[in-house]
Design a protein around this nucleic acid. Structure first.
Lengths: 225, 225
DNA sequence: GTCTATATCTCGATAGAC
DNA sequence: GTCTATCGAGATATAGAC
C-alpha cells in the first residue's frame, strides 16, 4: 500500500514533502494519459500541461518520460496486489472469495485508468514490470493458491485449480474496466451506471461462486478439447 | 471471414492479385509489431523491414502508417466476429456454448497477436473501430443474446443475463492470450503448453457451463454488493 | 525552482530519377 | 515499382539566465 513518493516518514522536511507531493501530482496526471495512449502516445508536454507545470519543470522532477511511466506503474502495482494479499485463510472460503470479487469490481469501477494502464503494460509483454511479476506477484499468487487448494482439500469448496480460478476472477472483473469501450458500444452502459454495476457484479459472483459450490463443481465439463 | 485485400474475385488480374498479396503480407508483418508496441510504438521502417520491403515502397502500397494500422484491425475484426456468428439457435445450448468457448480458446492459442492488438485498441477507447463496434458488433451480440435468452426462457439453461454471459466468456478466453506475459510470470506456462491449454479450457468450461446448469444457476449469489 | 531558447534526433512522408 | 535523398514536423532533453 506504500505509495512511491508519498510515503513521507516523520523525518522528511517540509521541502522534501513538497517535492514529493509535486512528483505525486505529476504521476497522477500521467496515469490517465498513459492509460489512454500508452508510453509512446503521450508527449512530455501533454503530461506537463495536465500536471500544470512547464515542460522544463517536468524534467526537473523526473529525468525522463520513461521514468515517469515506470513511476506510475510501480506505484500502481502495490495497490494492485493488496486485495489478493488480504485474502484470509481463516475466513469462510465462499465469503472470502466473494469479498475479493466484490473488491475487484469496486476497483474496476473506481479506478479504471489504473486497470487499463496495467493491462496495456501486460499486453505488450510487461517490459517494465516483468521482474516484479516474476517475484512479488508470483510469490503472492502461489501463497494464496495454496490457501485455496487447502480449502478444496478440506472439502469446503469444490476441487478447482487455484491458479486458473484466480485468472478467471482477474479476467472477468478487470474486463469491465479494460474493455469498457466495447461494453459501452454493445450494452450502452458502463460501471458508472449503478444498476449495471450490480448486474455485472452479481453475474461474476454467480459464475465464480457457482464453480466453487461443492455439488455443482464435482461434475466435469463435457467434451473438453 | 472475408479478408480485406486477399478476397480476390475471378475477375482480378494477375497484377492486381500480386498487388493485393503484397499488401496482405505487409499487414501480416504489421500485426505482430503493432500487437506488441501499439500504433505509436512502431515505426514505418520497422514494418518495412519485417515485411521485407523498403520504407519508400511501403508508402507505395499504403498512404500512411495509420492506414496500415486500420487495415490490420479491419481485417482482424471480421475473423473476430465469425465464431459468435456461428452460434446456432437450433443446437443444444450446452453443446453450442461449449463449442464457442473451445473455439475462442483455440483462437487465443493460435493467434494471440490478433487478440492482443484488439485488446490494445479497445483499452485505448477503440478510437479506430468504435463505429464498427457500435454497429456490426452490437447487432451481432444483441441477436445472439436473444438466442441465449430464449434458451433461458425455455428452461434449457439457467436464467442468466446473456450479455454478461458473453462478456464472461470473452474475458476468460481472451485473458489467456492478452495476459500471457503475466500468466507466464506466475504459472511459468502459456497456452503453447498442451497440458496447460487443456487445464485452462476445462476450467473455463467448468465455470461457464456450471453457471448454465439448470440446478446450480437458480440460486442467487450471497450478499451481492 | 522556474523560465526562454535551443540542440539533437527520430520519424512520417514525398520528390524525382530509373 | 523500386530506389536515393531529403524535407519538415514534432519530440526529448538540456543550457543557462533569473
Amino acid at each position: 500500500m506504500v505509495r512511491n513518493g508519498s510515503a513521507a516518514g516523520p523525518e522528511t522536511s517540509r521541502q522534501q514533502r513538497r517535492f514529493l507531493a509535486r512528483k505525486s501530482a505529476i504521476l497522477d496526471a500521467a496515469l490517465s494519459l498513459f492509460s489512454q495512449s500508452g508510453l509512446r502516445g503521450v508527449s512530455a508536454e501533454q503530461i506537463a500541461e495536465a500536471a500544470d507545470v512547464s515542460k522544463t519543470n517536468l524534467f526537473y522532477y523526473f529525468s525522463s518520460k520513461e521514468e515517469i511511466y515506470v513511476g506510475v506503474l510501480k506505484r500502481l502495482l502495490s495497490d494492485w496486489l493488496a486485495p489478493l494479499d488480504a485474502l484470509d485463510p481463516q475466513a469462510d472460503p465462499i465469503q472470502a472469495i466473494g469479498d475479493y470479487v466484490r473488491l475487484k469490481m469496486e476497483m474496476s469501477r473506481a479506478d479504471p485508468h489504473s486497470s487499463r494502464l496495467f493491462c496495456l503494460e501486460i499486453v505488450q509483454g510487461a517490459p517494465m514490470i516483468g521482474d516484479e511479476l516474476r517475484t512479488s506477484l508470483k510469490t503472492l499468487v502461489d501463497r494464496k493458491a495454496a490457501v485455496i487448494r487447502r480449502w478444496s482439500e478440506d472439502g469446503k469448496i469444490a476441487p478447482v485449480d487455484p491458479h486458473h480460478l484466480i485468472y478467471a476472477i482477474w479476467a472477468m472483473t478487470q474486463h469491465y474496466a479494460d474493455f469498457s469501450a466495447q461494453i459501452a458500444a454493445v450494452s450502452g452502459r458502463t460501471l458508472d451506471d449503478e444498476l449495471f454495476f450490480r448486474e455485472a457484479t452479481e453475474n461474476v459472483l454467480r459464475v465464480i461462486l457457482g464453480a466453487l459450490s461443492t455439488d455443482a463443481g464435482a461434475k466435469s465439463p463435457q467434451g473438453a478439447a
